[in-house]
């Protein structure tokens, strides 16, 4: 039986930081259509800090809600701090998820980390 917390439903209905950033400092897409979950994260970074973050999601309510919460949590953090955020942190902030939905919360963190890596790689050679 799938049952979401009020907070999850709130993030699903009113996702924070939704959409795209034009000319982002980094972006990354993770997941696949075949799996039923896919996400793109856009980052704006200044002085090693995430000053803006937006996301788009093809996925279930848990996917959308965890992405939304993740963006709220990491906005304003340094890259080092953001990299330490785990899926468990996000799920706890949401008041929990049905166990079958854990993999969806992984995707939010995976996509964030991939975007940060893309940013760090883009610095090399600059």
């Amino acid at each position: 039986m799938l049952k979401y917390t009020e907070l999850v439903l709130d993030h699903f209905k009113n996702p924070r930081n939704l959409g795209r950033i034009e000319n982002p400092d980094a972006e990354a897409t993770e997941g696949s259509i075949a799996c039923g979950d896919m996400m793109t994260v856009y980052l704006k970074i200044e002085d090693n800090k995430i000053v803006d973050i937006k996301f788009e999601s093809y996925g279930c309510a848990a996917n959308i809600a965890t992405a939304s919460m993740m963006t709220e949590v990491v906005k304003g953090l340094t890259l080092e701090e953001a990299k330490k955020i785990t899926w468990k942190d996000i799920v706890e902030r949401l008041g929990g998820l049905p166990p079958v939905k854990y993999h969806c919360s992984n995707l939010a963190i995976d996509t964030l980390r991939k975007a940060i890596s893309a940013y760090e790689e883009s610095l090399v050679g600059k």
Partner: peptide
């Protein structure tokens, strides 16, 4: 196309 059914059904339920 381009969207996922669990989110559609939950959205409709709301």
């Amino acid at each position: 196309s381009f969207i996922e059914g669990e989110a559609i059904s939950l959205g409709l339920s709301l």
